[in-house]
Structures are given as structure tokens and as C-alpha cells.
């Protein structure tokens, strides 16, 4: 039974095959999300999945909830309005890295600062996948993109650090290789109230992979296995051994009153 839990939440009537390339990591994240939702026992009618634009943002098309595919970078702002209208709805926001912290960076920091009760999942493939591999704000320095053919000379964003600094109540990172951890973190985020961010590193064989010599999907997963290490182990690593490695795990888990709860109190106090 466990094996088919994902099928329960896929739109049966429609839209398969999906648009993702063979071997893309996005599907792994989507199914982790569905298992986490199932575990949380949410009623499908009370869940909204909102996305921006990009390969990752096609997720809502396939899942049987209240779904909105919005404009590039603006998913959090749409979700903010929806959450104000429907305070009891669980609003999950899925975005690509470019969507979340490139074009949508301003909405990201402000939704976090406000502590909007939105469950963010960033599919981070380190590149603009859908449009053919332009550098994104998370393309690591030195790595290649179609707009950084000689290696990226910019510094890259650490989405978890950004989320932490701007006030998210829960921040975690996993990868499309570390599926159980990913599911666990998404589940944890669903059970929390407030702005939560799960960064899901995903491999993109077609653009990032091809440009950076991790072309095969399996190579992409092995890369994740070798380069992402649990926070506790990372903390103990000497500086020189951290080169090329990245921490994963739960970085923030705190309690803070969210915006909508405060607003509902404000209404209560000022009602005529």
C-alpha cells in the first residue's frame, strides 16, 4: 500500500506524461512532497499548491489539490493573498532556485520577514533549467552555465542561510538522492506554523549536468551523495576539507507567531 501512496495524489484525469526530462530530479521531490502530505493526513480540499514559472513550477499541474501556476518569481505574493483569504488552508509554494531567489528574491525575503504561514519547497538545480541553462543566483562560483561559459564569476546564494537570516521558522536542506530525509523535512515543515523553507537540491542532467560534466542522471545522484553531508558532520569538518562539500539537515526550527494569526487577532480587537 505504501508503494502506491503517491498515486492517490496524482491527477488521474490529466497531464501525463509530465514535461520533465528523463532522469530529472524534480519528480523525486514531487513524490517526497506527496508522501509528506499523506503522512501529515491533510485533506486534499484544504491544500493549495502554488508555483511560479520554470520546470519545477510545473509540479502543481500534476497533483490533485487546489493548484495555481502563477508568474515567474511571484508565487509567494500570490500565496500571501490566498493565505489571507483562506487562513485554514495549507499553502505549499514550490519554486525553482531562479524563481525563488532570483526574480522572486524580494518576495522571498519579505514573506519570510512577515512570517507568512507558507510551506516553501525550493527545487534547487543551480540553474535556469526551463530556458536552457542560464546562470541562476545559486550557480556555484566556477561552475558553467550558458550565460557563464567560462565559469561563473559571481558568488552564489545559500538559500538556507538567506531563509534563516530573514526569519523563517523552519529551514532544512536535502537532495533528490537523500529522499528519506527530504520527505522527513517536508513533513516537519507541514506540521509547523509560519514561514518554512525546505531546499531540495535536484539534479538537472539536461542543462546543469551537461554543462558541468554530470550529464548522466545517476552521476547527478552520486554527486549529491558525495558532496552533501549532514550538518553535524559538516560542523566538525576542518575548513580545508569543506571545499566542494555542502551541509544538509535541519538548520532552523523555532516558534514564532505568523502574520495571519496576528492579523486575525487584530480583527478581533478592532471589530465593530
Amino acid at each position: 500500500m505504501e508503494k502506491n501512496v503517491v498515486h492517490k495524489y496524482l491527477r488521474k484525469n490529466k497531464k501525463f506524461p509530465h514535461i520533465w526530462c528523463p532522469g530529472c530530479g524534480h519528480g523525486v521531490i514531487m513524490s517526497s512532497m506527496l508522501r509528506a502530505i499523506d503522512k501529515q493526513g491533510l485533506d486534499r480540499d484544504d491544500v493549495a499548491v502554488v508555483s511560479g514559472i520554470g520546470c519545477s513550477s510545473r509540479t502543481p499541474t500534476y497533483v490533485d489539490f487546489n493548484t495555481i501556476h502563477t508568474t515567474h518569481g511571484r508565487a509567494l505574493a500570490f500565496a500571501t493573498g490566498l493565505k489571507l483569504a483562506k487562513p485554514d488552508m495549507t499553502v505549499i509554494v514550490v519554486m525553482g532556485d531562479g524563481d525563488a531567489v532570483g526574480i522572486g528574491g524580494n518576495h522571498f525575503i519579505h514573506a519570510a520577514r512577515r512570517n507568512m504561514d507558507l510551506k516553501v519547497i525550493v527545487y534547487n538545480n543551480n540553474i535556469y533549467g526551463m530556458t536552457g541553462g542560464q546562470a541562476s543566483p545559486t550557480t556555484p562560483s566556477g561552475k558553467k552555465a550558458t550565460t557563464a561559459r567560462y565559469g561563473n564569476i559571481e558568488r552564489s546564494f545559500d538559500i538556507c542561510e538567506l531563509a534563516k537570516a530573514t526569519g523563517a521558522v523552519y529551514v532544512a536542506r536535502s537532495t533528490s538522492y537523500h529522499v528519506q530525509a527530504l520527505e522527513k523535512y517536508i513533513h516537519r515543515s507541514l506540521s509547523k506554523k509560519g514561514f518554512t523553507v525546505v531546499e531540495a537540491m535536484t539534479h538537472c542532467p539536461t542543462t546543469y549536468g551537461r554543462l558541468n560534466k554530470i550529464k548522466e542522471p545517476v552521476a547527478g545522484m552520486i554527486y549529491q551523495k558525495d558532496h552533501f553531508i549532514m550538518k553535524a558532520a559538516w560542523d566538525k569538518l576542518p575548513e580545508e576539507k569543506r571545499e566542494g562539500k555542502f551541509p544538509m539537515g535541519e538548520f532552523v526550527d523555532i516558534e514564532k507567531t505568523d502574520f495571519v494569526s496576528k492579523y486575525l487577532r487584530l480583527i478581533e480587537a478592532n471589530k465593530e
Binding site: V50, I68, T70, T71, R74, A77, F78, A79, T80, G81, L82, K83, L84, A85, K86, M89, N106, H107, H110
Partner: peptide
Amino acid sequence: IGSMASIIGASIGG
């Protein structure tokens, strides 16, 4: 940009 997006979100919420 956010204002416009959020009123659409709110309208979708009824």
C-alpha cells in the same frame, strides 16, 4: 508586483 499578485491570490480564495 506583489500587491497585484496578492489580490489575485485573495480573489482565488473567494
